[in-house]
Design a protein around this nucleic acid. Structure first.
Length: 495
RNA sequence: GGCGCUAUCGUCUAACGGUUAGGACGGAGCCCUCUCAAGGCUCAAAUACGGGUUCGAUUCCCGUUAGCGCUACCA
């Protein structure tokens, strides 16, 4: 695709009404990748024209989420830029000016209908079996007279004077040409009675003024495409290139990805907010990689891609048109993969806050030793406390003495094995290799299988059957702790 | 209801008229192995349906069906 690099300017334009959602993150990512791929600019614009749903925390959640994902914006809040301000409520005068222009050219008109009337009209139309909507009552008002009423302070909105016939065809980079009949379109409100524009006006004006070259947004916007294009034309502008991204659907495949967190049948939390994924210990590397694969692909085999590779390979031509179902298992797989790829020092560093949050007295030195032992056993960083608890706990959580009994053995065998192990551990050098040699020979002395000796020891020191490799674990734990826990296990077997 | 979008394994996807329809997640099995993982190998698993166009359709066109989205002085 021949796209002049300097010309590429894209934006992510969320509304600060709630928490930063993965659907939004995917839209932001595609914009980011497209901008970086073409050496263009990635603009962040806050569309806060809905004062009723405004949430003062939303902006913080958004910025934090974008930073966690590493989606740095070139222009926007906290960054500035030459097309600012980047918050729409700080641009109200601009929208009013453009509204005046539309009023003067006759492409818009003042509407004095009350919300009550609007509702009644819509209901009436529906009862008559017609499409609900506005009956264009104020369209035929004399503009001069309407201006006078407005000047007197009469509450009113400004509506777009939509063409009543004909059709409009819009080209979408992902979907091709889409044709709409103008007769099906509404005289949509552009300026609300409180003097704040609706999304439609603000969006069109800002994209133009901010020199946005490509609009990459979710598929839920295709139905406002004809309105927007009419608006651009009415203002004497050419619309930017349009590309509507496929929706992300719930894991069930029913409906678009929920805005609320839910729980799986097993009680597991199914996060939908970027902040929650961060809290749960999903790596930004994995999130980015997974999100990129939702609606886009590189070829028939490559799935693991770094941010740099994604930037190099991303292209709108390979974005899918069909919706994508969210798949937590696949994300988990990628997260586990990226955790395993981390250098141990890096893993330890990322693990530290999660271990401390669990109440463990975790220091760097200790975590550095534990990290390699749990690296391929966790899928998220927040799995670490449960998997590595016995490394940090002074007292092991209670476990059933029956766990100590090895396969094809009995309590007596477990006890003998542990006593023998205790003896060996008291004497052996405490390195992985020496421990293994000592314990294998101890098992040999008892004429039992190595596994029948290792399993009781494992349960004694870890408090459970599934754990990291035994000898490394013993080494990290140290002689004192190991002997103490084996003694406790022997006591458990006696009682 | 109206309008719009979409349609390949359960899921994410590859194929840009000619392939034994490929890969990944998940599932099953085997191997490795001190448990659990990780890793390796193998297997099962798809072109929604009906018409066209074409020598030939997963691919292009139309219809049906289904799913989803929008239908506010919300974005």
């Amino acid at each position: 695709m021949a796209i002049p690099s300097e010309a590429v300017r894209v934006r992510y334009a969320p509304s600060p009404t709630g928490d930063f959602h993965v659907g939004g993150a995917r839209t932001a990512l595609f914009n980011y990748l497209f901008a970086r791929h073409h050496g263009g600019r990635f603009v962040l614009r806050i569309e806060d024209t809905d004062q009723k749903r405004y949430n003062p925390e939303a902006l913080n959640w958004l910025l934090r989420g974008l930073r966690y994902l590493g989606l740095d914006w070139d222009e926007g809040p906290e960054t500035g830029g030459e097309y600012g301000p980047y918050v729409q409520t700080q641009r109200l005068e601009i929208y009013r000016e453009h509204t005046r222009r539309l009023l003067e050219s006759g492409r818009a008109y003042r509407c004095f209908c009350t919300p009550e009337r609007l509702e009644a009209v819509s209901r009436e139309l529906q009862e008559k079996g017609q499409n609900p909507g506005y009956d264009r009552f104020c369209r035929k008002l004399d503009p001069e007279e309407a201006a006078v009423r407005a000047a007197r302070g009469e509450a009113h909105t400004v509506r777009f004077r939509m063409a009543e016939s004909g059709e409009i065809t819009v080209h979408d980079l992902i979907r091709g040409d889409i044709t709409f009949q103008n007769a099906n379109l509404q005289d949509t409100v552009l300026m609300k009675s409180d003097g704040i524009p609706t999304y439609h006006l603000a969006n069109v004006v800002d994209d133009r003024l901010m020199k946005i070259s490509h609009i990459l947004r979710g598929d839920e916007w295709v139905n406002s495409l004809p309105l927007h294009v009419h608006l651009y034309r009415a203002l004497g502008w050419e619309p930017p290139v349009m590309a509507h991204l496929p929706l992300i659907l719930n894991p069930t495949g029913k409906g678009k990805m929920s805005k609320r967190e839910s729980r799986a049948p097993d009680g597991r939390v199914m996060p939908v907010f970027v902040r929650r994924f961060e809290e749960m210990g999903y790596l930004p590397e994995a999130m980015i990689n997974y999100l990129a694969l939702l609606g886009w692909s590189f070829d028939d085999r490559t799935e693991i891609m770094s941010r740099q590779e994604l930037i190099e390979r991303f292209s709108l031509e390979r974005v899918n048109a069909s919706p994508a179902v969210w798949n937590y298992e696949k994300l988990d797989h990628l997260n586990g993969y990226y955790i395993r790829q981390l250098p141990v020092t890096e893993l330890a560093e990322r693990l530290l806050p999660f271990l401390r949050a669990a109440g463990f007295e975790a220091d760097r030195e200790k975590v550095l030793k534990v990290a390699p032992l749990i690296q391929e056993r966790i899928t998220t960083l927040s799995d670490a406390p449960a998997v590595a608890n016995f490394f940090f706990l002074e007292e092991l959580p209670p476990y059933d003495a029956a766990e100590l009994v090895p396969a094809k053995g009995d309590a007596g065998m477990a006890r003998i094995a542990l006593e023998k192990a205790r003896e060996a551990l008291a004497a052996a050098g405490f390195t992985q290799a020496e421990l293994e040699a000592a314990l294998r020979s101890a098992a040999g002395d008892l004429k039992i299988k190595p596994g029948q000796m290792f399993q009781p020891i494992r349960v004694a020191v870890c408090g459970r059957k599934a754990a990291p490799p035994l000898f490394e674990t013993l080494e990290v734990l140290g002689r004192e702790t190991c002997l103490k826990r084996i003694d406790e296990a022997i006591r458990k077997l006696q009682s």
